[in-house]
Simulated scan of single mutants.
Amino acid sequence: MTRFEPDRGLTGRMVLTMFLLGLLYVAFMAVLIAVGTQAIVVLVIAVGFLLVQYFLSDRIALFAMHGREVSPQEAPELHGVIDRLSALADMPKPRVAIADSDTPNAFATGRNQKNAVVCVTTGLLRRLEPDELEGVLAHELSHVAHRDVAVMTIASFLGVLAGLITRFTLYSGLGRSRNQNGPPIGLIILLVSGIVYAVSFLLTRLLSRYRELAADRAGALLTQRPSALASALTKVTGEIARIPTRDLRAQQSFNAFYFVPALSGASIAALFATHPPLERRLEQLARISAELGRR
């Protein structure tokens, strides 16, 4: 347990979303078994991918984003903030890393509190004031405390499985095979896999947006300064919008980890976004500020 305050409304919606993903998984496997496909082979492969992602998520993310762990001597101020927040939240201090990137952002990864790492970019450190940085890091520590990386890894399993089965069907030629007494088995599998992947994708994105709102709330309540987090959100989102798109493409696949999405804009439908709109996040922080003012 930590001292991050829970949000029962958001938690309930997260549980419902996870339940729907589980229900979808059961229905998917039932259909595959009914049509007689050798789903067990693909299932074993998918479980292997899941385990690698689950146990090595911290190393994979740091390697992909060129982040490196730093000691208290190398980054005393950053370590100082995380020390204070970890003590305030009554949780183990995560490892601290810095990524040499001008994109102002931060992310937390790791399957649990003992294996967690919080990484910030040099661009974020240059742009934020101390209280704004504290708000961002409280947000990231909330992800660690609530095991959001593990939750999102498990939630994404169904989409990975559906994608692998689709590829297996196409490459094996099963998509062109036909049952002598019925419709083509391959086409049925492709259709079901495609539908499952689409629904899983949307539910996972919905879950990601919920967890971002929950992390905003928990971080703001921990520091008791929601205005600092709101200021950081506004500043960082504006900075990212001015960075050339080509510098952000390599980071789009890690949007679910980030404090703010690496690429945003009106051209991307909110339905497919990993993060809630900035306006909604700021509205929630304004409500929290009003709540704290009445206490």
Rank of each mutant, 00 (worst) to 15 (best):
A290C: 07
A27C: 15
D247R: 11
D131W: 11
A220M: 06
A218S: 10
P92I: 05
T103R: 06
Q38P: 11
R246Y: 13
A230Q: 06
R242F: 01
P261A: 10
S227F: 09
P277D: 11
A97N: 05
L190P: 06
P261V: 05
Q113Y: 01
Q53C: 14
L16H: 00
I288R: 08
I288E: 05
S231N: 11
Y210R: 02
L32C: 10
E212N: 08
P6H: 00
I154D: 06
Y258E: 04
L51N: 11
L51D: 14
P94N: 11
L158A: 05
E5L: 15
L56P: 01
A215Q: 01
Q180T: 15
Y258W: 15
I165M: 15
P226K: 06
R178A: 12
L263H: 13
E283Q: 15
L85P: 01
R295S: 09
R178Q: 14
F259L: 04
R211M: 01
V144M: 00
L23S: 12
I154F: 06
N112G: 08
I188V: 13
L133V: 07
I268G: 00
L285S: 04
Y210W: 09
A162M: 12
S289C: 03
I195A: 12
R225W: 03
S267M: 13
P226H: 04
N115M: 08
P6D: 01
Y25A: 15
M152V: 09
M18A: 14
R209G: 02
N115I: 07
S193D: 10
C119S: 07
F257H: 08
L221P: 01
F107E: 00
Y54S: 11
T234C: 07
A64Y: 08
R111C: 00
V160A: 12
R287P: 13
A262T: 06
L141V: 00
I40H: 12
R84C: 00
A266K: 15
T245G: 11
V15M: 05
R167Q: 13
L51Y: 15
Q284Y: 07
P94V: 07
G159C: 10
R84I: 03
